[in-house]
């Protein structure tokens, strides 16, 4: 009987944990996939546990993911992967097989504080055999090609507080005679340039300044693709509203953290009057230098950026805020 207590204690202290470990190891199974264990933590606590992951093209990857503090999300940009939610202390698994060599950005998809968008990492997919086609390098964005300086724009103080409305501007029979868009590329047009052209239009001399802004708003939003606006507003609510505000007013819950320079307001005509589609696109792709604006070039698809820009114009000029058309 002397050995029995020892046996019992050994069984409890070693046997039970070993059995638990074995049963769970057997459950998870093993395969040829490359296993990547990734812990999400708030950016202030170090962000992702890995900044850089190396992978081989065509080789399946198995991500084992958890969060160590608050709710985070995980997605690989431009992979077609649906974002998954990471709850603290719970594990999720997702598999991914890179189809082309290159650098992929993985990022957090649920807001986790003001520095949420700094929570990114890179997957470097190599092709040792050199048999997979390399994806063609994306052309440089338009602001680079056109040489537009997206960081120096003036505010037009007299327009502060002016809220044009496309609804008011939709007067039947009222139309400009001449061209009001930028002749080189319509997307280079800024609202103030367009307005000045309309002001000079002899057909519209009867309108006062405010009514002319309403007409511009109508003409401008009439050019937007309604479906793209809807998609853009969804992307905006999920990714941008926490700073830029649910109505685009620059008053989101995180805005306090970025007081200098303040978060851009899309409903402030004084600022928006000097923006153009090319400028907005550039800001989104490149991010704001020295501001809290993250860099989206590696995350969003070109069509998503286009949708976002259209949604921003909608919020700025439709008079309907973030209400979808």
């Amino acid at each position: 009987m002397k050995w029995f207590p020892r046996l019992l204690l050994a069984a409890l202290l070693v046997g039970v944990p070993a059995a638990a470990l074995w049963s769970q190891a057997a459950r998870s199974g093993a395969d040829a996939a490359q296993v990547v264990t990734l812990h999400a933590r708030m950016p202030e606590q170090g962000g992702w546990s890995l900044d850089e992951i190396r992978a081989e093209v065509g080789q399946e990857m198995r991500f084992r993911l958890t969060s160590d503090d608050v709710v985070h999300g995980f997605a690989i940009a431009r992979s077609g992967m649906e974002p998954i939610s990471l709850e603290p202390g719970r594990w999720r698994e997702v598999r991914w097989r890179p189809q082309a060599p290159g650098e992929y950005t993985f990022y957090c998809t649920r807001w986790c504080g003001p520095n949420h968008w700094r929570m990114t990492g890179t997957i470097i997919v190599v092709d040792p055999q050199g048999i997979y086609p390399t994806s063609t390098a994306a052309p440089p964005p338009r602001f680079v090609r056109y040489g537009v300086d997206i960081d120096s724009r003036e505010a037009i103080e007299r327009l502060t507080g002016v809220r044009p409305s496309a609804q008011r501007g939709a007067v039947p029979g009222l139309a400009p005679q001449g061209a009001w868009l930028d002749p080189k590329d319509p997307d280079l047009t800024t609202p103030i340039e367009a307005w000045n052209r309309l002001r000079a239009d002899p057909a519209l001399t009867a309108l006062d300044d405010a009514a002319l802004w309403d007409l511009l708003a109508y003409l401008w939003t009439d050019r937007l693709d309604r479906d793209q606006v809807r998609r853009g507003l969804e992307t905006f609510q999920a990714n941008c509203a926490a700073c830029h505000g649910p109505q685009g007013g620059g008053d989101g819950v995180m805005a306090e953290a970025f007081a200098d320079p303040p978060v851009a307001s899309f409903t402030d005509l004084a600022r928006m009057a000097t923006a153009s589609t090319v400028v907005l696109e550039g800001k989104i792709l490149r991010g704001g230098m020295g501001t809290g604006m993250p860099y989206w070039g590696s995350i969003l698809e070109p069509a998503q950026v286009d949708a976002l820009v259209q949604a921003i114009w909608w919020m700025a000029l439709s008079g309907e805020g973030s209400q979808a058309p």
Binding site: L12, D68, P88, G89
Partner: peptide
């Protein structure tokens, strides 16, 4: 009594191990 104490000791050991090697998320540990 000894058996209960042994079981309690085992749980005590599990708890300490979990504290050191388990998740830092308190309500999941």
């Amino acid at each position: 009594q000894w058996s209960l104490m042994a079981v309690a000791l085992a749980f005590f050991a599990y708890v300490v191990l979990a504290g050191f090697f388990g998740t830092p998320v308190g309500n999941r540990n």
